[in-house]
Amino acid sequence: MKISIIIGVVHMIFGISLSLVNHMFFRKAISVLCEFIPQMIFLIFLFGWLCVMVLIKWISYGNGDEFDKVHDSSCAPSVLITFINMVLVKPETPEEGSPCKVLFFDGQFTFQVVLLLTAVICVPIMLIPKPFFTRYEFNKKKKAHSNQHTADTGETSAVISNEEEEEEEFEFSEVFIEQAIHTIEFVLGSVSHTASYLRLWALSLAHGQLSEVLWNMVMAIALKQDSTVVGTIMIYLIFAAWAALTVSILVLMEGLSAFLHTLRLHW
């Protein structure tokens, strides 16, 4: 169930890594510093940490014995609840008399606060510096062209200079709004994409519950018959209904739903 989250986050990290190739090809150092690096930090420090907690839970908790209740799977902290409390900066309190830990390791709350603050700081870095640097570069380039045309006293060059200045007007508000749209799109996209991969997790949980319901409501009725003859006949008759429901609901409906979500996310 949780591996869909890991695959999804790796997929999103790969997508951001592709933007680095474009920035390096067009030699946009400001885009690397103010877009690629903050985006990667934001994604890894939040949703990458979510994947790390899943791996820690897999490694640290299993089928414990009667002498090691702390590392039993029933004692494992909830990854989603821990992540939600991390975003809300809400400390978890252990239950009285329970041997279970509310977090995976000591100092995790402080560590998560540092990750969250760093991720939040990355948002204004993605938003603010690039428009100002773009305006600085434009004014620098415009000043250089102006000095070049001033040195040239020809009438034709003066006309060309005026035409170029009219065409190359820099609208700071448009650039800033465009950068704000890109920043909001990335932040909301990261959250919504991760939520979509979480939906695959939820689909698998629903799939398991539907399987149990179908078994208990259909096949278990025939298996609980006292008479072997009656039970055999009921199994023979009920199996058709059970198979039809299993194929139609679990295989077709659930499979198609998960397939569509996955296809949309990959696209």
Rank of each mutant, 00 (worst) to 15 (best):
M1N: 05
K2S: 09
K2E: 10
I7C: 06
G8S: 08
V9C: 00
H11C: 04
I13D: 02
G15H: 07
I16S: 00
I16R: 00
H23P: 00
K28I: 09
K28M: 14
K28W: 10
I30Y: 12
V32I: 15
E35R: 10
F36L: 13
M40T: 14
F42P: 03
L46Y: 04
L50Y: 02
V52G: 06
M53K: 04
M53P: 00
M53V: 00
L55E: 07
L55Q: 05
K57Q: 06
K57D: 06
W58V: 09
E66F: 11
E66G: 00
D68Q: 08
V70D: 08
S73A: 15
S73I: 15
P77C: 07
P77E: 10
I81Q: 12
I81F: 11
M86H: 04
V87G: 01
V89I: 13
K90I: 07
E92K: 13
V102G: 03
L103K: 09
L103E: 11
L103R: 11
Q108Y: 09
F109Q: 05
T110P: 01
L117M: 12
A119M: 09
C122A: 13
L127V: 13
P129Y: 10
P131V: 01
T134K: 04
E137C: 11
F138W: 15
N139P: 00
K140T: 09
K141N: 05
K141A: 13
S146K: 14
H149Q: 07
H149G: 13
T150P: 04
T150N: 13
T153D: 08
G154A: 03
G154H: 04
T156R: 09
S157Y: 09
N162F: 07
E166T: 04
E167Y: 02
E168F: 06
E168S: 11
E169V: 04
E171T: 02
S173Y: 08
E174Q: 00
E174I: 00
E174K: 03
Q179S: 01
T183K: 03
T183D: 01
I184C: 14
L188G: 01
T194C: 05
S196G: 14
S196H: 07
L198N: 03
L203I: 11
H207V: 14
G208C: 10
S211A: 15
E212T: 14
V213L: 14
M219W: 06
D226M: 12
D226N: 14
T232G: 03
I238V: 11
F239T: 07
A241P: 02
A241F: 10
A244G: 12
T246Q: 06
V247I: 13
I249C: 07
V251I: 14
M253Q: 04
E254V: 05
A258F: 03
L260F: 05
T262L: 12
W267A: 11
